[in-house]
Every structure is written in C-alpha cells, then in structure tokens.
C-alpha cells in the first residue's frame, strides 16, 4: 500500500523554537487517520507542512508520493474553519467552483442542502457548526485524494461535533479518499478514525491501525512491583496493594497473579501522552 503522507526527520522552527522536530511518520492510504496530541504538540505545524502551507526547516515530507503543495489533489480544512463572513453560502460555492479545476458542483449543492444551509445566508451569520459544515463542503467538493482537517471540531458543541464527524465519515467512505484529522480529544476521532497517530512534544509516540493497537495493548492489574516478563510498559500506576499497568504484549507469558483486561482507546492514548521518555 502506498503512503499518502510520509515524513522523514521533519522539523519546523519559528525563531528559536522548534514547533516540530525530528518527526518521522508513514501513513498508508485509504484510512481516516486521527492525529492526536496535546495542545502545542505540533499537530497544526505538521499539517501545515504536509499541505505545503509552510516550508520545513529540516527533513522531508512527501504527500501522495510527491512534494507538498499539490493544491488540487489535497484538501485542507483549517483550524476554526474560516469562511468569508461577508460572502453568502452560495458565493462560497461559486468561489470553490472558480478556484478548483475538479470542483464537483452537484455534490456541493446537494451537500449544502442536506446539512440544512441556506444558500442566501451570509457565512458571518451561520452558527459555528454550520460554518464548519460549509468549510468541509468546500474541502470535499474540490475532489481531493487526501483531505487534511486541523482541529475542525474544537470550537463546536457536542451535537455539532457529532454531525460534523458523521458527515465527514460518510463523505470519506463515498468518495474513497484518505483523511487526516487532528484533534486534542480522543473522543472526537474515536468514532471516525481507523488509524491513529499520537504526537507528543513534536514526536510521534504511537502510530497504527486502531484495531491493531487495541488488540496489542492490555491493562494489567496485579501485585505491587514489576510487571510480568514479555510486557512493554507504557504507563504505570502504583498503589499500596497493587500496581496497574497499561502495556504492550509482544509475547506475553500467562501469569495467574495478574488480571488482564482490554483497554479503551482514550486510556491508551492518555497512557502514551503521559509516558515519559
């Protein structure tokens, strides 16, 4: 399978501060990828570099097998889903049609109607959720092969989040495009994503298909002290009577003293986020 996004030692410096450093990543195509990390981890920077909006200070990034900045083939829905406040919904679609050679006008009109946007309404008077839907429509109707979304739902209420993620999943499945979605909340991406990248302090801590990641990790609870052999500890909580670990099993040896339970995606991500290295 070819990589839609590949980064090798990628770094970006603003002044003296590295917003992203030594980032290496390989994302296969055909996935809805959740890019998760705390604020300031470098998610926005990584997406800016991948979409060609910023120039790397170090390393290399390839998108769809070539350099970044392939505007027609890569869509980008920016943080806070900006739109022109003075332009109507219909004028935004016209903007999209004028500025994109592969624009799918029928899809755009149909989608605007489906999510209940009034074409005559100015974008400045839309709610946050409606504006996000408009921005997503613009991103999808240009018919990209790869769509980046940078924290698109951060400012939305839970209902609007659900509507947005739902719409995104449907469209991604319909059009068969690859999607990279960044968020600082696991719950946003949990529903939509089948591939997960955890970025902490500008480094990739975990990357892989969601199901495989969940299958490889377990929560271990047992007597205080070191975990059984064969487990790679990600996070540990020590109490007086027992120790609790979230750990990855490469070749676990069964040990009746330990309780082994499945771990949820949110706990897994939090474990990697808090992991000290």
């Amino acid at each position: 399978m070819t990589a839609v996004l590949r980064a090798e030692g990628l770094g970006k410096r603003y002044g003296k501060r590295w917003a992203l450093a030594d980032c290496t990543l390989d994302v296969p195509s055909g996935h809805v990828v959740g890019l998760v990390g705390p604020n300031g981890a470098g998610k926005t920077t990584l997406l800016s570099l991948a979409s060609g909006q910023a120039v790397p200070s170090a390393g290399r990034v390839t998108v769809l097998g070539g350099g970044p900045g392939r505007l027609a083939r890569v869509g980008f829905v920016a943080q806070d889903t900006p739109t022109y406040a003075g332009l109507t919904v219909a004028e935004h679609l016209r903007l999209g049609a004028r500025l994109n050679p592969r624009w799918d006008d029928a899809f755009a009109r149909e989608r605007v109607a489906r999510v209940g946007l009034d074409p005559a309404r100015r974008a400045g008077r839309l709610s946050g959720g409606q504006r996000a839907q408009l921005a997503l429509t613009l991103g999808l109707a240009k018919r990209p092969e790869l769509l980046f979304l940078d924290e698109p739902v951060a400012a939305l209420d839970p209902l609007a989040r659900r509507g947005f993620v739902q719409g995104l999943m449907e469209a991604a499945a319909e059009q068969g495009i690859s999607v990279v979605l960044s968020s600082h909340l696991v719950s946003d991406v949990e529903r939509a994503c089948d591939y997960l990248v955890v970025l902490v302090a500008s480094r990739v801590r975990l990357a892989g298909e969601t199901d495989a990641l969940l299958a490889a990790h377990r929560r271990l609870t047992g007597p205080p002290g070191a975990p059984p052999p064969g487990w790679h500890v990600v996070a540990a909580v020590h109490a007086e009577r027992q120790s609790s670990y979230i750990a990855r099993a490469d070749d676990p040896a069964p040990d009746p003293a330990w309780t082994v339970a499945e771990v949820g995606l949110e706990d897994l991500v939090l474990a990697y986020m808090s992991e000290d290295r």
């Binding site: 920016a78 900006p82 994109n100």
Partner: peptide
C-alpha cells in the same frame, strides 16, 4: 485576521 487566507490558499490556486 479572519483566517480566510487559510481557506483561500487551500483552493487549487497558488
């Protein structure tokens, strides 16, 4: 200031 450069720069126009 309104962030719309990030909208327009991500259309298929350089």
């Amino acid at each position: 200031e309104t962030g719309t450069h990030r909208l327009v720069w991500n259309q298929s126009v350089t």
